[in-house]
Amino acid sequence: MKWMDKLPTVISCCFCCFLRAGTVMIAVFSFIIGILFAPNVSHSHGFWDLNPVLSNYSSMTEMTAQMTLGIASIMLCVVSVLLLIGACCNIPILIEIYQWGAIVYSGTVILMFLILSIFCFFVHTNCYLAGGVLCIMILCYVLLTAYFVIVTNSLRLSVQFLSSSNLVI
């Protein structure tokens, strides 16, 4: 039995729509989030303008953080497309690839935000508000990723069950 099989399951997404429709919405939402933070796609500075936090230390640190977030965002876009294909075509392995991709993306973003919040709290003493906002964003990322993984896992388990049983639908 896999580790993902032990997660709790739900019967609907957001208490209002079927698992497949909810999984498609999750795929679209994840793709949009990945596109927003991918480099050179959204022409706003957003997370790419880290000068107020890291300007006193090194441009190499800033470039490393930007490239890490950019690569993770591109990876999120790819696994979101795989989730969309897996949900529409009943392919459980693609759904599982998305689950692991979402966990890796969330872990990467949480690590970057944690590093930036440590800079805000302990290095620059005048940006406690930014550090607090980053901590709240970390909490939101953890909760959102956990919910997305639970919903997609429920669809994956139901697809596996229906494909292995002799039920006629």
Score class of each variant (00 low, 15 high):
P52H: 06
N56P: 10
L143A: 14
F47H: 05
S164L: 12
N40H: 10
I110T: 02
P39W: 01
S164R: 12
S117D: 15
N40C: 15
I115R: 01
A65I: 14
S106D: 14
S163M: 00
E96K: 10
I91G: 07
S106H: 10
G132C: 14
G70H: 03
A38T: 07
P52C: 04
H124V: 13
A87H: 08
I115G: 13
G46P: 05
T64D: 01
V168A: 04
I35F: 15
L155V: 00
T145H: 04
L94K: 03
S80A: 14
F15D: 14
L139S: 04
L144S: 14
V104Y: 01
F161Y: 09
Q66A: 14
I118M: 15
I85P: 07
F113S: 06
L143E: 05
L116F: 09
M75S: 04
H124E: 10
V79M: 00
L54I: 04
S55K: 07
L116S: 09
V104R: 02
E96L: 07
C17E: 00
I91H: 13
V168W: 00
T64C: 00
Y98W: 15
S163T: 04
A130D: 12
A130I: 13
G131M: 12
V53W: 05
N126Q: 14
P92L: 05
L36G: 04
H124T: 10
F31N: 04
L50Y: 04
I93Q: 13
I93A: 13
W100F: 02
S30I: 02
S106Q: 13
C140Q: 14
I35A: 15
A72P: 02
I118S: 08
F15S: 15
F122D: 08
V142T: 11
Y128L: 13
P92D: 09
S163I: 02
G34R: 00
N90D: 08
N90M: 05
V10H: 00
W48A: 15
S73Y: 07
V81H: 09
S59A: 10
L94E: 03
G86F: 09
F37L: 03
I97C: 06
G86M: 05
L7K: 03
P52F: 05
V151K: 05
E96S: 11
Y147Q: 10
T64L: 06
S12G: 02
F18E: 12
L76S: 02
N90W: 03
P8N: 02
K6L: 00
A21L: 09
I150A: 13
M63Q: 01
Y105Q: 09
L69K: 11
V159T: 00
T23K: 01
L69R: 05
V81E: 08
I93V: 15
L116R: 09
G46R: 11
D49K: 12
I150H: 14
L139A: 11
S164V: 08
N56A: 11
L84S: 06
W100A: 02
A21V: 09
T64E: 01
L144C: 14
F121A: 14
A38S: 10
P92A: 01
F113V: 03
I115A: 06
V81R: 12
V104N: 02
N166R: 08
G101C: 14
R156G: 12
C14W: 09
T64W: 00
S154E: 03
